[in-house]
Amino acid sequence: MKIVSPWKLEREGVLGMNGRNADYVLKYNRRKFYPRVDDKLITKRLALQGGIPVPELIASVRFNHQLRDLKRVLDGESEFVIKPSQGCAGQGILVITQREGDLFIKPNGATLTLEQIKRHISDILSGLHSLGGQPDRAMIEKLIHFTDAFEPYTYQGVPDIRVIMFLGYPVMAMTRLSTSMSDGKANLHQGAVGVGLDIGNGRPLRAVQFDRPILKHPDTGNSFEKMSIERWDDILLIASRCYELTELGYMGADVVLDREKGPMILELNARPGLAIQAANGTGLKNRLEQIKKLSESRATPEQRVKIAQELFAVA
């Protein structure tokens, strides 16, 4: 096991967990704005008000007795996602991609009955997946039809693009691709692959799994080099516009690309992880400091994206 001296990390501008919490999360994110990102139903409402595209909500469930209507609500729906409104780290998300009569089929082929889906929702309502274990609401969303661009690089699952936003400027981005090891989940510490993206043009920079560099997707065997992401500027723009919605200075925005509807905000995070640095092969600190220096002017989201692209473009 190799370790590196803290001075070298400092020189590279690597942001540690303590540094993120003390110097950015605690300083730039006001506690009272947290519900805006911790509760996905609030995020969705704010986004709709601000005209930012989000996945369509089929229904939200607050009480157990509402489950009696579930059969009617899901009538005709064969592709949907059930998730806790206040879940964290992708917990409690149930994806249904197909339906055969009364059976619901998950992406990995496993089937669920309506009863099992009800129990999953009931677990969500009692707070099993929420941050502090407090009672929660469940949301049922339409499934996103992902663009084919990621197809060669992902094993099942939901490829999304994480953009770190500081004071409304996109500072770093990566895409998270699920693997068989991550069980089809785009969760980096479960073994999903993170591919760093050039803020300038969305081209891949390098890829990591468990914070260690890799060259090819472990399941599909495709090299990431040729990957290209469409509508990159739009992706950065909707992420950037979230700053006005949430007023959180340091934030991670998760963007998904729908085949027809284009980029949509999936969720926002007030304490985004640090693995993005490994995926980009560079530390966050220097970029954050650069933004701090210019933040005096009141720039529009479009201007912010442009400034950030000029500052952080690699190629």
Binding site: K2, V4, V14, G16, N18, G19, A278, T282
Partner: peptide
């Protein structure tokens, strides 16, 4: 706000 011990290992490939 400095690094944690495990981060010296975690971010080693970066440097």
């Amino acid at each position: 706000s400095g690094y944690r011990l495990t981060e010296l290992w975690r971010f080693e490939p970066l440097v």
